[in-house]
Design a protein around this nucleic acid. Structure first.
Lengths: 169, 169
DNA sequence: GTATCTAAGACCGAATGGGTCTGGATTCCG
DNA sequence: CGGAATCCAGACCCATTCGGTCTTAGATAC
């Protein structure tokens, strides 16, 4: 299937959300305990914005924070904010933090070991594909997600407060 | 994890094996359809060559045959052979035949439907990545696996046709 | 007619992924 | 100070998928 997990999806969406908040809210609005990258958003807020299970997102954000992509702040008005500018956080980092190392084939492991050790003959060509995908994702930043260059925009995604599913596509 | 399944691995290895057999069997290069030469290999042979479970490989080959990538021949000296020249069978076809449609994110489905229907905002950028990966795999043929191009080249621009690595969004 | 091979399906155990729950530890605020 | 809001870290559960096996049936060459 070659697909990334829902967790990674959620993580990307959350980062995008934070990037938008940071950009829109102006840095000076509320002096937040983060590192000045806009206002901190709680896991619950983000989860509600996208209708994803709050507890699950909470765990994802924890992982992201542990990996240095987010900064967290506990307490009453705590939450998460980006650890770096959105343009300097790549989708690859997010995915690897959540889903672990990115290997297209079961052969390519950290040690290069393979259960088909000697006789796995397709390893090398696939490694190139693997690297290409990695490069591909490394070239995609959160800022790119948040601010699509010129793609089609027939989707009305205005902040739907407590809205229902609005099937647009 | 973004990795393809072991079945797809096995499938690719098997195709590569068949390509090599076809090429080495005296017939002109790898560009020979699976007809007329006794180079049909049984599932058991291939399985033994790579030490993979024979019955599992058998099922994989069946799927491949059903999808028109292999031609099968039952009977005493039956077996499988490539339905097309190895250079005209892409890794993408193999993977899709075995692992099903290739979608990087759970949002992108056949109908475009998404459980996060309206509010999945990262769908479009990721679709581009998805397409790029698809192009990447479509540019990799079985012949490339069997006869690895000079890997001393730059990694990303191997045998791939268009500028697919340039996502840049 | 029999040995050899593919075809097709049911079936199973283990791993993974998605999601929940619980019990803390921190920080703000009245 | 004490409580509310928030993050943190696990354990835990359930459904799906994956890897693999088994069985039965249909084709084909000798």
């Amino acid at each position: 299937m070659l697909r990334l997990t829902k967790k990674a999806d959620y993580g990307l969406m959350a980062l995008k959300y934070l990037a938008e908040q940071a950009a829109g809210a102006g840095v000076s609005a509320a002096d937040t305990p983060g590192s000045g990258q806009g206002s901190a958003q709680s896991a619950k807020d983000i989860a509600e914005a996208y209708h994803i299970p709050p507890q699950l997102l909470a765990k994802i954000l924890q992982v992201l924070a542990r990996n240095g992509l987010l900064v967290s702040h506990a307490g009453t008005h705590g939450g998460y904010s980006l650890a770096r500018p959105a343009s300097q956080i790549t989708a690859f980092e997010v995915i690897r933090a959540i889903d672990g190392p990115l290997f297209i084939t079961s052969c390519i492991t950290i040690h290069g070991a393979c259960d088909l050790a000697g006789h796995c003959t397709i390893k090398e060509p696939l490694r190139k594909v693997n690297d290409s995908i990695k490069d591909l994702l490394s070239g995609l930043s959160i800022a790119d997600l948040a601010d699509p260059p010129e793609s089609s925009r027939h989707e009305n995604e205005a902040a739907v407060g407590g809205g229902l599913v609005s099937i647009a596509v």
